[in-house]
Design a protein around this nucleic acid. Sequence first.
RNA 1: CGGGAUGUAGCGCAGCGGUAGCGCACCUGUUUUGGGAACAGGGGGUCGCUGGUUCAAAUCCAGUCAUCCCGACCA
Length: 578
Amino acid sequence: MKASQTPLFTQKEDPKDAVVASHKLLSRAGYIKKQASGFYAYLPFGYIVHRKIEEIIRTKMNKYGAVETHLPVLTPAELWQVSGRWSSMGPEMMRLSDRHNVNFALGPTHEESITWLAKQYLHSYKQLPINFYQIGKKYRDEIRPRFGLIRCREFVMKDAYSFHIDDASLEETYQKMRECYREIFDECGLETLSVEADSGAMGGSGSEEFMVPSAIGEETLLLCPDNDCQYRSNQEKTMFKPQTPYSSDKSNAAAERVDTPDVKTVEEVANFLKAEKTSFIKSVIYENSSAVVLAFIPGDRDISETKLKNLSGEADLEMASPESIEKVSSAPPGFAGPFELNVKNGDEITVQGEKKNVIILYDKNLKNRGNLISGGNMADTHCINLQEARDFIIPEGEEYDLVQAKESDLCPKCGKHNLKSTKGIEVGHVFKLGKKYTEALDVSVLDAEGRPSTLTMGCYGIGVGRTLSTIVEQNYDEKGIIWPESAAPFRYYMIGISKTEEEKKEIDDLYERLIEKNISVYYDDRKERPGIKFNDADLTGFPFQITIGKNYFENKKIELKIRKTMQKSEMAFEELFS
RNA sequence: CGGGAUGUAGCGCAGCGGUAGCGCACCUGUUUUGGGAACAGGGGGUCGCUGGUUCAAAUCCAGUCAUCCCGACCA
């Protein structure tokens, strides 16, 4: 390919709306162009890279036994209604209707579609396991598109869905996909960490995310520094293990209410009562349209909203309104506590005309403790000398992990080392899905005994554009992008420097010889000064640069430069063929 | 949706009551040509949109749309 037919679209200045390196460089080097927030056009080089990454993924997926399909982007509402996601997906799903007012959604993901497909053709356990995948556009009306290709509203995803007769089979495919992903990201030149991830309200028994460590990562990871332990998890999933165990000291003093006028937060009350934050019970209250969730956790820690949502089984929880708080704690916000609470688990209350279930959750680090302090369920009042089992009861088997873990907590796996925190970009996710969709769409096959058996599923996703962008995020310098060979648009960027038409013709011929040998080369044959070409070559970032000019016409030497190291060497043109 | 900011030429910006400017890019010519050339000439903008204030609005006011940043979603 040459510049006279496929032009460069490079620019000197960063677009003003770009904040991260990959977005700036991909824009400046003429790979992508934003059309609207979260929607990007791919320019010729960008699309070549995109296709190369797709091809890496495709090759590996095929190698690991997955079969490629292609599903419609526009999906009928009916499918989503069956699974319940037509309503639960909310505004994130882009919807539209046809001329007959039939509703559709631009698929944000394709569990329903693929499950529908599986239902059409899977009838026997002998057909299993099977792993369908596709590489296609996804649409998510993200609240905040960000960082160029990292978080888009339209993006290409490789999504795979496997179907199994039992958990053992799912486990086997799940492990294969983990291996497959490792190979894919390796080949893309990305160093990934796989971390334990939240499996969300969908349930499921396991989920891992493939993370690329990066300062611009939107995920916080907690890692055990010990090489034998290797515990790694997404912070929202990390089990909390305190550095120092909470005191279990108890006294015989009875629970007592004390005046704490206008002191509300744990911080304020701790100062006021001259007590340690660790001896407090922090009460947090969330709600959605159908439930009010009270959680009690150690006073020195923050709640993990992810854990709260999973354990309560309630999605889209938000901080409770003052009305709801008053309803459950008989006091304004800031004075709730577990002692003499006037609601209990399973109660139904009415707040501003809406009926809501009360769900109460206790953190396990409050079990068997005494000398605790919490809100008194009365305005301007706190309770001291609280003792679990005496003044409030955490039911057997309901000691939950509700606390958000953080750096320097103990590793919950080995219990020996302090966790380290790092940021990561999520480029892939493997997930044991279970039966949610096969049950909803009633997908079963006959097992070996001739009995119908509902299938279990796994799903596996990779964001293609995000992977592309992440490669740049990890591989650039002050001059521009540095592509790994596997993803580069071309292997060579060839710069011709000629003073006469004859010389130009001679370089053109050399280019033709490379093309004949099927060498991946982009030829910058523009009538530009050399400096412009050198800079564009560095900016666009192909692995090698070939310069043909004065030295060739005088000594038959060309110059080869390695983009990554900037090392230059002279050689005969023919050496390119070896 | 809450908080903050910005919309002026293809890109990056200045101008902030008197009718539009700079750098880069672009076109023509000359001289240049191994790390973003110099000179000369030239083209291009109803200043996001709508309304208001004013003799006069890019500039002040209101509304609206778009974009970006910080928080809740996710590949």
